[in-house]
């Protein structure tokens, strides 16, 4: 639940999603759901010459189960806030 809320706060920011097939897609985070499925807008594949498979796709839905990493904007990370939240979660509330 913590990461679901965390990603919801990142909506509207520019992120890079790296998939388990090595494809990396950059775009504006449009939404995220309970499975951490991600929807990106204004997408572009990071290495378009190597991966031209999505040249005509501008908006996409990425299944949470195939995400390896999400690269965040530095200003999207509030370490103190995350510390608090993880401690609260560990305490069970």
């Amino acid at each position: 639940m913590l990461f679901f809320s965390y990603f919801k706060d990142l909506v509207g920011r520019e992120v890079t999603v790296e998939l388990k097939n090595d494809l990396a897609i950059r775009g504006t985070l449009h939404s995220v759901d309970q499975y951490l499925n991600i929807k990106l807008e204004n997408t572009r594949v990071v290495d378009q010459d190597k991966y031209p498979h999505m040249l005509s796709v501008r908006n996409c839905f990425i299944r949470g189960s195939v995400v390896r990493y999400v690269q965040l904007p530095p200003e999207g990370v509030d370490v103190e806030l995350l510390h608090d939240a993880t401690r609260r979660e560990a305490r069970g509330g």
Binding site: L19, N21, Y51, V57, R63
Partner: peptide, 30 residues
């Protein structure tokens, strides 16, 4: 399914698929 992309018809029409060469995408490894 890994990705569901909305296909932009205009962009797609402007692509010359017969000239596009690339390696097939790698499979997802969990």
């Amino acid at each position: 399914i890994s990705i569901v992309g909305e296909l932009d018809e205009e962009l797609d029409a402007s692509l010359d698929l017969s000239k596009l060469r690339a390696h097939p995408l790698k499979p997802v490894i969990h």
